[in-house]
């Protein structure tokens, strides 16, 4: 009996201590959040409470101008469609180059598959750095050297994609079965052949699924880079925005175009990814 009550008091004391500790952590977190908000508010050009009532002014301006000239909207869609396609192409080419680079890098940094094991550590650091550099940094430096246009943006996004996909792909590779690789090695296949016929078929669906997810992210990145001078829809958006009132209807058309593109790409890619990870496997089962 005494045992149980002893355990009970002991347990209660521990629970209290844990709750107390959690409470302190929570208070600390809230304090940090509030202090952070105050600091950000102080250092901002306009304050939060002053700006809040105006938050909807600009969307209202844009919307009213767009509605007043709604007849022009289809024309604007046609006008800006090439830029939108350029933005998509930047993302598409960057994703492809990034996926190809990431594929090679991932095979080089996976233990058991790497042709030069001593290279694994340094290459992983390189991937870390590629992932850590924001695209805008590379893009701005390249714009200075190569001039404006889509190519700096493509290179910048592709480099970041190599870092991101290289890491994800190597995690996929680690789960691949080594038996086909050993089988191929036993018949004298070269490293390239072992990877191409032994590993890639196992991991391809996961690769494509990750690459599609990256494509969604890259479209957003490519629109942002356009805004700092790398061509595409972002560039047009900045021009119409800096024009100000009078071109807000065109800005609205670009907003809509970008929004629709992002939503459509998200939907299509999530459908395709779902099929790659679930639908395809059941289909294969039926076939075999």
């Amino acid at each position: 009996m005494t045992d149980i009550s002893e355990i009970h008091t002991h347990y209660m004391a521990q629970a209290r201590r844990k709750r107390g500790l959690n409470g302190i952590l929570l208070i600390l977190f809230v304090a940090l959040l509030v202090a952070g908000f105050m600091t950000a508010n102080d250092r901002n050009a306009g304050g939060f409470w002053d700006g809040l009532p105006n938050a909807l002014d600009f969307p209202a301006d844009v919307a009213s101008e767009a509605i007043a000239r709604i007849a022009y909207l289809p024309g604007y869609f046609v006008k800006y469609l090439p830029s939108m396609i350029e933005t998509i192409n930047i993302a598409g080419a960057a994703t492809l180059f990034g996926a190809i680079g990431g594929l090679m890098a991932s095979l080089m940094v996976t233990r058991g598959l790497a042709p030069f094991p001593w290279l694994i550590g340094p290459l992983r650091r390189v991937l870390d750095i590629l992932r850590a550099v924001p695209e805008i940094v590379v893009a701005l430096v390249l714009i200075f050297m190569l001039g404006g246009g889509p190519i700096p943006a493509m290179i910048a996004i592709a480099l970041h994609t190599v870092g991101a996909l290289g890491k994800l792909f190597s995690e996929v590779n680690e789960n691949a079965s080594l038996k086909p690789v050993e089988g191929l090695a036993s018949v004298g296949a070269s490293w390239t052949q072992r990877m191409w016929f032994g590993v890639i078929p196992q991991v391809a669906p996961n690769y494509i699924s990750y690459a599609l997810l990256r494509f969604e992210i890259n479209i957003r990145a490519s629109a942002i880079l356009g805004f700092v001078g790398a061509g595409g829809i972002g560039y047009d958006l900045r021009n119409t925005m800096s024009w100000g009132q009078g071109k807000f209807d065109e800005a609205a058309a670009i907003f809509l175009l970008l929004f629709i593109t992002i939503v459509v790409v998200d939907q299509v890619s999530s459908w395709a990814r779902d099929r790659l990870t679930h639908g395809k496997s059941s289909e294969r089962k039926v076939a075999s």
Partner: peptide, 27 residues
């Protein structure tokens, strides 16, 4: 879906009109 689809770029533009440049707008 709407919040995600509108994208950070557009939110940034809209918010910087109301709050001006600075860390609060970015947050």
């Amino acid at each position: 879906d709407f919040l995600r689809g509108v994208d950070g770029l557009i939110w940034t533009i809209i918010l910087s009109r109301a709050f001006g440049p600075g860390p609060l707008t970015g947050s």
